[in-house]
Design a protein around this nucleic acid. Structure first.
Lengths: 335, 335
DNA sequence: CTGTTAGCGCATTCAA
DNA sequence: TTGAATGCGCTAACAG
């Protein structure tokens, strides 16, 4: 139904090769014929069919963005970063959200292929050996965002240091009983950064001569409500913590809710530190570890574009800084 | 580089037609050959090239989702709704975020075409006559989410009623000085729903015999920070309002920040009502008008799928309910 | 400078 | 039940 290159050629009285030439500036065309072609294109409201073009060129001009934890505001902010540079490019983006293992498998089995997309941007997922094999075999450019792999380009942060900063801040305020609310340590998607944050937490405690108390460590699936539940459990312990460090701001907001439920004042009765610095952390006046979410999305696509342009370039890694942002949810403990 | 249908055919010792048949169950194949083909597919890790398939079938198995105000949490929640049903389907999604008029034009000029995508889901944008012409010409299925157009399928809400409920709630509490913070009334993208909410606001006031004071109506671009600024202006008026109704929760959170800046207690000194009921409204204990965001995304794609299946079916419109959710940010005025 | 032709990978006829 | 041939819309190489 829509006009094809043949329709344009016929209307302009030229061959399809010529139309293609003016479309892509692939070879010189006389002013006269160019004008005729342009006119025909205008009149027919012609836009080239991407499938035809893709098939012919072997390039899709599309990148896939694979996201897990798609409920999290942090992922949304990363995605916004991606979209901001996509809008300026002539690439399309295919979005894949994966929440379950079967979904993960399906996506990783079908998406990372030449002819399907030109490159992959993967948020917060650790590729398995199987994934890696596939990726290498298809020779498809990949960039991990909030991920780490020695053989793939990635944007990552020093999570251990970030977590350490947060806990050191609490220790510096005089806290001795510091709990940690985290994602499952061996969650199937994760790139080990949750493990790293846990290690940072432990390191900071140990460096200060504080014990790592197992009952102060809770794990749960990544929602605010779970954060609230786990905080409630912690705060109802016989010897409750005076401060809670959270794997994410999402959890931290849940902790704040729990404190409200129990009529605890923050920060007087309970200090709370989050991780991510999502948009709403500022609203909640949450002390948190900032990772540059939007920026990580931006740099991720840029890296991917580079890799697509220059497939033989060595992989790159970019480390984004983490910084502690002290707001109103941390203070010295009362007791 | 990746295996093609020819590679599979050769390895299996059959013709490509046969391979295609087992791939799509398009015609009977003997158990014996099917097995051989499946084996070859497995061995070569073959997945059909989508561009080829699309070109051949004239279907893309892709839908475009066009979103404006992509910074808003409400859009993210809608998108999550969309993704949740996409994950269960075998459709891909192409995401387009538009923030500026040139972007808008480019997207509407190139995206809504047969051969490019099978359908369009459009969030919070009012199609122009020009857009409509294009859409009709390409005969491409379209569903508007949070939009209204008599000739296109759409998911919408009765915004006038929603706004009225909110303002009536405030009036019922005894407020007489009620301000309204809105998006620009003639914003270029919008479908008029901001205008409708304004009318609902006016209606409720008038029905109660209250004056519509122009200085109580502020307009600004859709960010929390702007909400804060506008609230500051309102609250510094010689005769400040005792309640502020907001076009969105995003604005309302900004108003809450402004109140905090000015050491006003909410709801004692100032009542605040939002609109949308985003995830975080609950955290902020915000009284708000709920629209079912996630659900609107879900129903939007479902409607679109129906339209793709059955292109000649009449357009459908779904009205989603709005409901006032009273939380902690509204109370009778002090003075 | 321009028209013609050969694929790109697939689904789908048409024959056998 | 199957193989071979045709065409989807386009780009690029080839031939003028």
């Amino acid at each position: 139904m829509p006009a094809t290159i043949h329709d344009v050629a016929k209307l302009a009285g030229v061959g399809i090769g010529t139309v293609s030439s003016v479309l892509n500036n692939s070879r010189p065309v006389s002013e006269e014929t160019r004008r005729k072609v342009l006119e025909a294109i205008e009149k027919l409201d012609f836009v080239p069919n991407p499938s035809g073009r893709r098939l012919s060129m072997g390039k899709t001009h599309t990148i896939a963005v694979i996201i897990t934890y798609f409920t999290l505001a942090s992922q949304f902010e990363r995605l916004r970063g991606v979209m901001s540079v996509i809008a300026e490019s002539d690439y399309d983006i295919n979005l894949f959200a994966i929440e379950t293992i079967p979904q993960r498998n399906k996506v990783f089995q079908t998406v990372p292929r030449r002819g399907r997309v030109d490159g992959l941007l993967i948020f917060s997922i650790h590729p398995t050996k199987e994934d890696l094999r596939r990726i290498r075999q298809q020779k498809i450019p990949v960039v991990l965002v909030e991920g780490y792999h020695p053989e793939l380009s990635h944007i990552f942060l020093d999570d251990m240091a970030g977590a350490r900063q947060a806990v050191e801040h609490l220790i510096g305020l005089g806290h001795q009983k510091i709990a940690y609310i985290s994602d499952y340590l061996d969650d199937l998607f994760s790139s080990g950064f949750n493990r790293n944050r846990y290690m940072g937490y432990c390191q900071a405690l140990e460096a200060a001569g504080l014990p790592v108390r197992p009952e102060y460590h809770r794990q749960g699936w990544h929602t605010r409500e779970n954060g609230r539940q786990m905080a409630l459990e912690l705060l109802n312990l016989p010897d409750p913590p005076t401060a809670i460090f959270c794997f994410s701001d999402e959890f931290a907001l849940g902790v704040l809710e729990a404190a409200r439920d129990m009529n605890l004042r923050v920060p007087e009765d309970l200090s709370v530190v989050g991780y991510d610095d999502i948009e709403l952390a500022r609203f909640a006046q949450l002390t948190t570890v900032r990772q540059h979410l939007f920026e990580s999305g931006v740099q991720g696509v840029e890296l991917l574009f580079e890799a697509i342009e220059n497939p033989d370039a060595p992989i790159k890694e970019i480390q984004l800084p983490t910084e502690l942002v002290v707001r109103q949810t941390t203070a010295p403990p009362c007791r």
